[in-house]
Nucleic acid binder design. Structure first.
Lengths: 125, 125
DNA sequence: GTCAACCTACTAACTAATTAGTTTTATTGA
DNA sequence: TCAATAAAACTAATTAGTTAGTAGGTTGAC
């Protein structure tokens, strides 16, 4: 038997989504160009990955002349939310307090920073 | 070309680690029994996964009579820290504030809960 | 001593993920 | 028109991950 296709973005998938979020609609060529800045990658590799992203529903595409133009269906915020939820359930028994505790321990974040954030959130609501 | 073996715990791996964290040292039989409570799983499947966990360095084993007894090498806290750091870098541009913001938006966590946590952390230091 | 159970080692099957080459098709400029 | 070019479609190779069957050895019970 075999594994299920993961719901979460894989590394490669995320690389492309990152570019779509950054640049908005992009052709395969654009994406390949942007990715190549980090690490050389074949055009056809990018094509394949874009096709998979579309199959998985993370991206959309339309034809413009010869080329396919891809567009993110999931927003960056949604992706963050989903990844965070996943982590929360998988590692922290769905306890946001536990996660917050680890975050405070591990990073240099301070309660006063959080208070400022909370205020900002309250204001924007 | 093919993919790299992931540093992060996979789903299956985590299931076993979870049991090792819960129960401490466990034989394959123990682990299989505990896993079966959730979802039927073949004994040999568990064996294979334990072997892989050991290969990856996440678990240790020793022989006791005929059986192998497995033990987690990484603590649950370390795993949490590592997963959290991973999420932080991958999705939140290494900004703990951004992550905290999403956590507060998404969950029902309250500042006063965090204050209690902070107090606890300060006391135990 | 034999037999059942128990356990590991080996093997296998199959999908996902990653990377990229080859083939086909369509556009466009000379 | 026709060749160059660009892009998609198709194909392929390889490793990871998941699940489990089979073979073979130990050992304890009777």
């Amino acid at each position: 038997m075999a594994r299920k296709r993961s719901e979460q973005l894989t590394d490669g998938e995320q690389g492309i989504m990152e570019i779509l979020w950054e640049r908005g609609e992009s052709s395969v060529k654009d994406i390949a160009g942007a990715l190549a800045a980090e690490k050389p990658v074949a055009y056809t590799t990018v094509q394949t990955m874009c096709k998979i992203l579309a199959e998985k529903g993370h991206a959309d595409f339309r034809k413009e002349g010869r080329a396919f133009i891809y567009r993110a269906r999931m927003s960056r915020t949604e992706a963050r939310q989903s990844a965070l939820k996943n982590l929360l359930n998988r590692f922290f028994g769905s306890s946001p307090e536990l996660l917050a505790q680890h975050l405070m321990r591990e990073t240099d974040i301070e309660l006063k920073d959080l208070e400022a954030l909370q205020k900002k959130i309250d204001e924007t609501d």
